Simulated assay, not measured.
Amino acid sequence: MNILQKHLGESYNNLPPLLEQAHRGDIYLKGKAIVKRGNRLGNIIANILKMPPASTDCNLQVYGNHTEDSMKWQRHFENHIMTSNFKIAGEFLTEQLGPISLLLKLNIKDNKLSYHVVKTSVFGIPIPKVFSPTLTAYEMEYNELYRFHVSISLPIIGLLISYNGDLKLI
């Protein structure tokens, strides 16, 4: 059993086969991504948080490790590395991305694995819901490829970063 099986319970069995493979043991995904950044202030914040630079044609490699208690994804956007560490927190998952901690609830609908933010903290300080980022994130299988989309926006500021693409499970 791995961390996603624990979190999703019986619904884990509804994952498309490619997504199930991409969340089991040690994995390697490779392909292309598009990375977008927001306005000037959003761009400054994305730089502070060490997020990847904007690119219309970015080579992306993802190394993942899935165990019963954790999931680690290391994304290589060309020469920029972004790492997320996931752990179980009761009925939720936490994603640690640098100083940001997201409390997440995942679900499967229409063959998509979607991530929903319940609570956010920065440097361990909880952020009130009204100031928390909005996350749109999902993964799906498309033409035998691992398709993903992540978009993060902040109240008032707007888009912080968005990245999406298609990867092949190697």
Score class of each variant (00 low, 15 high):
V122P: 00
K119F: 02
I127L: 13
G90S: 09
M140W: 14
T120D: 05
N107Y: 01
I108R: 05
F148V: 07
V118A: 01
E144K: 15
V150P: 00
V122N: 12
L103W: 08
L106I: 06
K87D: 09
F131N: 06
G124F: 10
V122K: 11
N107G: 09
E144Q: 15
I88A: 09
E95D: 14
L145P: 00
F131Y: 15
P128D: 08
S121M: 13
H116Q: 05
L154T: 05
Y142F: 13
R147L: 03
Y138R: 12
H116I: 12
T134G: 13
K87W: 04
Y115P: 03
V150N: 15
K129F: 13
G124W: 04
I81A: 05
K87C: 14
I88W: 07
P133Q: 08
E78H: 12
N111D: 02
E95V: 12
Y146P: 05
L145H: 09
S84C: 14
N85A: 12
I127T: 10
G124R: 09
A137R: 14
N85T: 11
F123L: 05
L145D: 05
D110H: 01
S84K: 11
T94S: 11
L93P: 04
T83H: 08
A89K: 13
S151M: 13
M82T: 09
M82R: 11
N85E: 10
P128L: 14
Y142M: 06
D110V: 00
Y138F: 15
L135A: 10
